[in-house]
C-alpha cells in the first residue's frame, strides 16, 4: 500500500463523490434529516414561547424561553433516563441512578435541545450511512472499471483511499450540519452561550463521526464483496437495520438476544455522549475495534477477489 497514492485517491474520491450522484443524494438526505430533527426539537419551544408572549406581552422573551425549556427538561428527563438506561429491571436502583445522572448531564449541564438532537441523530445516522457508503467499490467492481486503475495503483491503496475519501465526505457533511444547527440555535435561543453550544456541538459531531467508522467499514466490506450496487445497498441496509430489529424481537423470548446489539455499535453508541469519560473512552475503543475488524475483512476480500 502506497501512502501518497492512498491520499490522492482519498482526495479525488471526496471531490468526485457528488459528481457520481450517490454523494449528492447522501448530502441531501443527511442535511434534510438533520435539519428536520432540529426543526422537530426546536419548533415546540418556539411555539410555546410565542403562545406565552401573546398572553403576556410585557414579559421578557428570554425569561419565557428559559421557563419553557425548564418545563420541557422536567418533562423529558424521565424519558431520556429510560432511553439511556442499561437495565430494564425497574428494581435496579444503581442502574436507575446512573441513568438519571446521565440524563441530568445531557439536559441540565449541556444545552438540552442540542443533546436531544444528537440523541436522535445518533439513532438515525447509521441508516443514512448505508445510503452514502454502499457503493464505495461495488459499482466499479460490477462494471469492471477498477481494472484500469489497477494498471497504475495497487489494490490496497484503492481500498484505503476510497474508504478515507468517504469518511472525509461524512466529516464535511456532519460539520456543515452541526454548524448550521448551532448558528440557528445560538441566534434563536439566547440563553445558551456560543461557547457552550460550539463545544457541545463539537463533541456531538465527533461522536457521530466516530460511530460512523464501524458502519462505514461494514459497508466497505459488503461493497467489496458484491459486484452489484443494488445488492450492496440492500445487504448494508438489512444488516444495519436488522441488528436492532432482531435484538428487540429476540429479547422478547430470550434475554441473551439483546447482546446481538453489540455486533454493531447499537448497544453502546449513545455512551459516546456520556458524562463519565471512561465510558466515552470504552465506547470509542469498541467502535474503533469494530471498525478495524470490518476494515480488515473488507481489505482481505478486496485484495483477493477477482476484479
Amino acid at each position: 500500500m502506497n501512502r501518497r497514492q492512498t491520499l490522492l485517491i482519498a482526495k479525488y474520491s471526496t471531490r468526485y463523490s457528488v459528481r457520481g450522484g450517490i454523494g449528492l443524494i447522501f448530502l441531501l438526505l443527511s442535511l434534510t434529516f438533520g435539519l428536520v430533527v432540529a426543526h422537530t426539537m426546536l419548533q415546540p419551544v418556539e411555539m410555546a414561547v410565542k403562545e406565552i408572549t401573546k398572553d403576556n406581552p410585557e414579559a421578557d422573551k428570554q425569561e419565557i424561553t428559559e421557563l419553557v425549556l425548564d418545563e420541557m427538561v422536567t418533562f423529558a428527563k424521565p424519558v431520556v433516563s429510560w432511553m439511556v438506561s442499561d437495565s430494564n429491571d425497574a428494581d435496579d436502583v444503581d442502574a436507575k441512578r446512573s441513568a438519571d445522572d446521565w440524563a441530568g448531564y445531557l439536559l441540565e449541564e449541556q444545552p438540552a435541545v442540542l443533546s436531544a438532537i444528537f440523541l436522535i441523530l445518533l439513532f438515525g445516522w447509521p441508516f443514512l450511512i448505508a445510503f452514502g457508503a454502499f457503493d464505495i467499490y461495488a459499482g466499479d467492481i460490477g462494471s469492471r472499471q477498477l481494472r484500469y486503475q489497477l494498471l497504475r495503483v495497487d489494490r490496497g491503496s484503492i481500498f484505503m483511499g476510497r474508504l478515507l475519501g468517504i469518511l472525509t465526505t461524512f466529516a464535511l457533511v456532519l460539520m456543515l450540519l452541526g454548524l448550521t444547527v448551532v448558528v440557528y440555535m445560538g441566534a434563536k435561543l439566547p440563553m445558551y452561550t456560543w461557547g457552550s453550544l460550539f463545544s457541545w456541538a463539537a463533541q456531538g459531531v465527533a461522536a457521530i463521526l466516530w460511530v460512523s467508522l464501524p458502519y462505514v467499514a461494514l459497508c466497505a466490506w459488503v461493497s467489496a464483496s458484491f459486484g452489484s450496487s443494488f445488492g450492496s445497498l440492500t445487504i448494508c441496509s438489512l444488516i444495519i437495520g436488522g441488528v436492532p430489529l432482531f435484538a428487540t424481537i429476540g429479547k422478547l423470548t430470550h434475554d441473551a438476544a439483546g447482546y446481538l446489539l453489540y455486533v454493531l455499535p447499537w448497544g453502546f453508541q449513545t455512551k459516546l455522549l456520556h458524562h463519565d469519560w471512561s465510558q466515552v473512552a470504552l465506547a470509542g475503543g469498541l467502535c474503533l475495534g469494530q471498525a478495524a475488524l470490518f476494515t480488515w475483512l473488507g481489505y482481505r476480500k478486496f485484495t483477493r477477489r477477482d476484479l
Binding site: L27, L28, A38, H39, L42, Q43, K50, V181
Partner: peptide, 24 residues
C-alpha cells in the same frame, strides 16, 4: 408563523436544495 412567516429552521430545510443546485 401560522402562515409560514418568520425565519425558522424549516426555512433552512426549504433552502437546502436550491442552494445546493446553485453551488453544484
Amino acid at each position: 408563523p401560522e402562515v409560514g412567516g418568520g425565519f425558522q429552521i424549516g426555512t433552512l430545510v426549504g433552502l437546502i436544495y436550491p442552494i445546493l443546485t446553485l453551488i453544484l
